[in-house]
């Protein structure tokens, strides 16, 4: 190999290294920007007043910036979505991984990938025109745009992630486990739920955590169905999430209000980082078996 060629090889190696590092650079960029732009408002408002204050009146004459309603709404909304979405997702996943005939499986799987591909604004639009009036009529509340509507929309939106990850985990359960259980006299269905599911529990936990991440990060769909008023969360109350708090005021904000929005994004980012850490923990444990 000539000297000339060796230099070219080195150069190309360097270029690919740079391309590989772009991802790391992006993560650092996002982290640094969020921290830098999120800290000033928190320092000005005070960390406790910001996190635990229960009123958000960003445009009032004497504005108050308490984001406790947003945090609680995001937590409750996500919990609700998990409550509806995980059982349906889990049972569908067991069905797909173990019981379904090949044809049925491919049909259900294409339905799942369709659900995953539908843009969130379409979920929001359908929720706005079906779910919101439905809730108003069914529960006789003045406005159907509520935490409940957001929970239902979110639970549908997280279904595909839960199903896909759980199916992968369930299919990876060694066949010997199931064979042993069947040989001991358990029926197939007992085997799936008492042997396969517990063996895949880390993977299923990862699926749930992934769903939590999706639900807490969703903005547009919940913005269209949750009414967007900074109330303390209640099932039939119009509420605002961490994500929608950022999205709804960004267009016209300025000064401290704008900085406070960045701080909200920082809080959301920290939540996501915690969730990512949990996800990695479960995925790693799943791999180690």
């Amino acid at each position: 190999m000539g000297k000339h060629q060796r230099i070219i090889e080195k150069l190309i190696h360097g270029i690919f290294l740079l391309l590989g590092l772009v991802t790391v650079g992006c993560v650092l960029l996002i982290t640094v920007y969020l921290i830098l732009s999120g800290i000033p408002a928190i320092r000005q408002i005070g960390l406790l007043d910001f996190l635990l204050g229960d009123t958000w009146e960003s445009t009032a004459k004497e504005p108050s910036f308490g984001i406790l309603p947003f945090i609680l709404t995001s937590v409750y909304g996500t919990a609700g979505a998990i409550l509806f979405g995980v059982p349906v997702g889990f049972f569908t996943a067991v069905y797909l991984a173990k019981l379904a005939p090949a044809k049925v499986k491919s049909v259900v799987e294409s339905a799942v990938s369709l659900l995953a591909g539908i843009p969130s604004v379409v979920y929001g639009l359908v929720g706005m025109l079906v779910l919101v009036p439905g809730i108003r009529a069914l529960f006789h509340v003045p406005d159907g745009a509520s935490l409940l509507a957001a929970m239902i929309v979110l639970s549908v939106m997280i279904l595909p992630s839960i199903i896909k990850v759980s199916v992968t985990a369930l299919e990876a359960v060694p066949k010997e486990y199931e064979d042993a259980s069947l040989a001991l006299g358990a029926t197939p269905i007992e085997t799936y739920f008492k042997v396969s599911a517990p063996a895949a529990k880390s993977g299923v936990a990862a699926a749930v955590v992934l769903g939590v991440g999706r639900a807490i990060g969703e903005a547009m769909a919940v913005m269209m169905v949750s009414g967007n008023v900074p109330n303390m969360p209640a099932l039939f109350q119009s509420v605002r999430f961490l994500t929608t708090a950022v999205a709804s005021e960004m267009a016209y904000s300025g000064g401290l209000q704008r900085q406070a929005l960045f701080s909200i994004a920082l809080v959301l980012f920290l939540f996501i980082m915690l969730i990512n850490a949990a996800l990695n923990f479960f995925l790693k444990r799943d791999k180690e078996g």
């Binding site: 590989g20 590092l21 991802t23 790391v24 992006c26 993560v27 960029l29 996002i30 920007y33 969020l34 732009s37 991440g213 807490i216 990060g217 969703e218 903005a219 994500t243 950022v246 999205a247 960004m250 960045f262 994004a265 959301l268 980012f269 996501i272 980082m273 969730i275 990512n276 996800l279 990695n280």
Partner: peptide, 22 residues
């Protein structure tokens, strides 16, 4: 690098929007 990619794929789009704006 793989950890960074995983982190990136977990970040909600509204945060990308915010950083993209900045």
């Amino acid at each position: 690098i793989e950890y960074a990619a995983e982190t990136l794929s977990g970040i909600p789009s509204i945060i990308f929007g915010l950083v993209g704006m900045l």
